[in-house]
Simulated scan of single mutants.
Amino acid sequence: MILSLTVAAFFNSVAYVMGDSHPEGSLCDFQACWLTYFDWSALAWVCLITVNLYLNLVQEISTNRYEKLYHLMAWGVPLVMASLPLLKGYYGPAGAWW
């Protein structure tokens, strides 16, 4: 889980150094989608690690069987959340980021 969080945080930080300071068009949309996806993914991994620790330490429940569910939640849900604005065309120049 920590490795997956590290991967999500790494790819999230890559978006801050890619491209021009003021991208336009499809690069701007790509960066926005990339940032949204990996922001939510990193947050999901932090939350799932917290839930996993609670289940293991407080409830004393083995969570090995939840590994696939954790990956589905941390990679799948952010994908849906980042794709919806992309499909609707809501990504683009915005406020301080333009």
Score class of each variant (00 low, 15 high):
Ala74Ile: 04
Asp29Pro: 08
Leu27Tyr: 04
Asn64Ser: 07
Trp34His: 12
Glu24Asp: 13
Gln59Asp: 11
Leu48Phe: 13
Tyr37Phe: 11
Ala44Arg: 03
Leu57Lys: 15
Asn52Ser: 05
Trp97Thr: 01
Leu35Arg: 14
Cys47Ser: 13
Gln59Ser: 13
Asp20Lys: 05
Gly95Pro: 02
Leu3Ala: 10
Leu5Phe: 05
Tyr37Ser: 06
Thr6Tyr: 06
Ser83Lys: 03
Ile2Thr: 12
Gly76Ser: 08
Leu27Ala: 03
Tyr37Ala: 11
Leu87Ser: 04
Phe10Arg: 15
Ile2Met: 15
Gly92Thr: 15
Val58Ser: 07
Leu84Trp: 14
Leu55Tyr: 15
Thr63Gly: 00
Trp97Gly: 12
Phe11Pro: 00
Tyr16Met: 09
Met73Arg: 02
Val58Gly: 01
Ser4His: 13
Glu67Ala: 13
Trp34Asp: 00
Ser13Phe: 06
Met81Thr: 10
Tyr91Lys: 13
Pro23Ile: 07
Trp40Asn: 02
Cys47Tyr: 14
Leu53Tyr: 07
Gly92Leu: 02
Leu53Lys: 12
Thr36Lys: 01
Asp20Met: 11
Val14Cys: 03
Ile49Thr: 14
Gly89Arg: 01
Ser21Gly: 04
Leu86Cys: 10
Tyr16Cys: 00
Cys28Trp: 14
Thr50Val: 12
Phe10Asp: 10
Tyr90Lys: 05
Gly25His: 11
Pro93Gln: 15
Val46Gly: 04
Asp29Gln: 09
Tyr54Thr: 09
Ala74Pro: 01
Ser4Ile: 10
Ser41Ala: 02
Asn12Asp: 06
His71Lys: 11
Tyr91Leu: 11
Tyr91Gln: 05
Gln59Arg: 11
Phe30Gln: 03
Ala32Asp: 10
Ile49Glu: 02
Val51Arg: 12
Tyr66Gly: 10
Ser13Lys: 06
Met81Trp: 09
Lys68Glu: 14
Asp29Phe: 04
Arg65Gly: 08
Tyr37Pro: 14
Met73Asp: 00
Val80Thr: 10
Tyr91Ser: 03
Leu79Val: 06
Leu57Gln: 12
Trp34Ala: 00
Tyr90Val: 02
Ala42Glu: 06
Glu67His: 12
Ala9Thr: 14
Ser26Asp: 12
Phe10Gly: 02
Thr50His: 01
Val14Thr: 05
Asp39Lys: 06
Gly19Thr: 03
Asn12Arg: 14
